[in-house]
Amino acid sequence: MGSFTTSVSSTCVEIYSLDLANNIAEFPAGSGIKIPLKPFFGILGVATPETSRTSVPPGSYGGNIDNRELQAGSRLFLPIFVPGALFSIGDGHSAQGDGEVNVTAIETSMNGRITLKLRKDLQLTTPIAETPTHIITMGFAQTLDEALELALKNMIDFLERFMNLSPENAYVLCSLTVNFHITQVVNSPQKGVHGMLPKSIFDKKINL
Rank of each mutant, 00 (worst) to 15 (best):
G62N: 07
L122H: 07
S10K: 10
D121E: 15
V8M: 07
A47E: 13
T177C: 12
T51L: 13
D145A: 11
G90C: 04
K191W: 02
I43W: 07
S109T: 09
E14S: 02
L152W: 10
K205R: 09
I106D: 02
K153A: 15
S10P: 00
P198I: 08
P83I: 01
H181A: 07
N154Q: 13
S74Q: 02
L118I: 14
G92H: 06
L148S: 07
Q96L: 11
R113L: 11
I201W: 03
A47I: 00
E146I: 03
A170G: 09
G90T: 11
L18E: 01
K153C: 08
P79Y: 01
M1R: 12
E100L: 15
S31C: 02
L20P: 00
L86M: 14
V13K: 05
I106V: 04
M196N: 06
S166P: 04
E130S: 10
K199Y: 08
T54I: 00
L150N: 05
Q142I: 06
P39W: 00
G112M: 06
K34F: 12
N64M: 04
F40K: 04
Q96C: 14
T108I: 15
A141P: 03
D157M: 06
P127T: 09
G59V: 07
K120A: 11
N207H: 11
S10L: 09
K34W: 08
S31I: 07
E130L: 12
Q96H: 01
D121Y: 09
S17F: 11
M163P: 00
L173W: 05
I136V: 12
A29P: 00
E107G: 08
C12E: 12
A105I: 02
I156E: 12
F27H: 08
A95G: 05
S31G: 02
K204T: 13
L173V: 09
G92P: 01
D145H: 08
E69Q: 13
K153M: 09
F81D: 02
L144P: 08
T133K: 14
G59N: 05
E146C: 01
A47Y: 00
D121G: 15
V185M: 13
A170H: 08
T11W: 06
L144G: 05
A105T: 12
L152H: 15
S175K: 15
E26V: 10
S3Q: 12
S60W: 00
S175D: 15
